[in-house]
Design a binder for these strands. Sequence first.
DNA 1: CTCTTGTATCGACGGGTGTCGATCTAATCT
DNA 2: AGATTAGATCGACACCCGTCGATACAAGAG
Lengths: 119, 119
Amino acid sequence: MTTAIPLVQLEVPERTKGCCQAVAEPLAEERAAELASLYKALGDPTRVQMIHILAAASEPVCVCDFTAAFDLGQPTISHHLARLREAGLVTSFKRGVWAFYQLNPGMSETSRGALQLIA
Amino acid sequence: MTTAIPLVQLEVPERTKGCCQAVAEPLAEERAAELASLYKALGDPTRVQMIHILAAASEPVCVCDFTAAFDLGQPTISHHLARLREAGLVTSFKRGVWAFYQLNPGMSETSRGALQLIA
DNA sequence: CTCTTGTATCGACGGGTGTCGATCTAATCT
DNA sequence: AGATTAGATCGACACCCGTCGATACAAGAG
């Protein structure tokens, strides 16, 4: 099955000494942390839906629309929006009594890539 | 302030009644949950690095290589690999005493998309 | 000014998560 | 067989997270 020439230089070894082979250089620590915290920010169904709503909206969305769209208390909505904001995925502003949220136009390319999955 | 003609049918309202406007149809619940749990599986720097290593490897990677690559106890390594496996991102097999892990060749398109960010 | 209302913040509770040491299992070596 | 070893599993710990009710804050309305 396996070889033809000395190209595949190592099959799964037969209990030689150690099986250990070299492994890719790890990502820069900050890069791994950046990716992980980005993924973590998206690791909740409510926040996924929020991003979906914001991605589909042509204008900033009022918090009251989120509280109407989800079966969750207002503090919880506020909490999720804050987490998205801390992750740099959304920005917000206040107009009168209302607070409006939108996708952060200046989000990183990485973030933009992650959001693309949320159709 | 507000109107001129019925063209931009709503600017940010001026404290009329409610600010609420219609919002996009939510994603199917299972879809949101699928995305969230996928993101959650990737929401840890160690697991991001593991995926990076597996994506760069041309062959299945032995667990002992992971334990060597990270400054973490062996049970912790095993735990993270198990989480990646439960998320459908990797598969594993045993050869002799060793366990080898690789990216799941049959992972979903969604998963593949999420992994693409991990260069 | 006082009342009302939209949001944010706080404190608490239950459940999940990353980590470890200890133990179990299975495969191999002697 | 007994000893060794790679890996998984278990139990425990500290911590984080999603949720809620209560409260604080800010901006209008009356």
